[in-house]
């Protein structure tokens, strides 16, 4: 550790192996329970599936969390909260999106106020398909995320920094105004 002290933003590849190992073995999640996917979380946390054995723990606030779970469909109103919460999280941070709603709007594809492609507004590292995904699927997604972190491919937060203007433009198109957030960093 200690390779990325200082002003300069270092590349993900330059991280020491230990830091990668550590950050993949302790993923703290914030579940943004807007959609029906939230109902799949309790079995994942409790004794049947027990996600804590992978070092995954639920957290109360975005400041403490590493992973943001978007559990299902988002409306325009909730998207704004999601972006606020995502920007309050502290990088490195990852996003796991649940179910087909986040991919293409799912069964609400023709609604006027749902968000069809979450990818356009915040970077998503792992999608879970299904409507709804089973707890095994969720655990699988976390394992996948760990693999991605290990391989250095879970770089959504860097993408968000790099293409911040593009993301903001997309967001603005939905809201018609800009969201103040962590933008000094970007």
């Amino acid at each position: 550790m200690g390779l990325y002290i200082g002003d300069k933003m270092m590349k993900y590849e330059e991280w020491s192996k230990l830091a990668i190992k550590v950050s993949k073995a302790s993923l703290w999640m914030l579940h943004f329970c807007t959609g029906c996917g939230a109902i799949e979380m309790p079995p994942v946390m409790t004794s049947r599936y027990d996600m804590e054995r992978f070092g995954i723990a639920p957290m109360a606030t975005p400041r403490q969390a590493d992973v943001l779970l978007i559990t299902g469909y988002l409306t325009v109103k909730t998207l704004r909260r999601v972006i606020q919460v995502y920007e309050q999280m502290q990088s490195p941070k990852y996003v796991i999106a649940f179910g087909s709603c986040t991919i293409n709007g799912g069964m609400y594809w023709d609604s006027y106020n749902t968000i069809k492609h979450l990818e356009k507004y915040i970077p998503v590292d792992v999608y879970i398909t299904g409507c709804m995904p089973r707890p095994e699927g969720i655990i699988n997604a976390f394992i996948k995320l760990m693999e991605l972190i290990d391989e250095g491919k879970a770089r959504g937060w860097e993408k968000y920094q790099k293409y911040y203007d593009k993301y903001k433009e997309n967001q603005r198109r939905v809201f018609n105004f800009e969201i103040e957030g962590e933008n000094e960093e970007y």
Binding site: M1, Y4, L18, A19, V22, S23, A25, S26, R63, D66, Q88, Q90, S91, P92, E182, E185
Partner: peptide, 10 residues
């Protein structure tokens, strides 16, 4: 260790 190696600290 993870918390102390976080990149952003607010």
């Amino acid at each position: 260790a993870k918390l102390l190696s976080k990149k952003t600290n607010i």
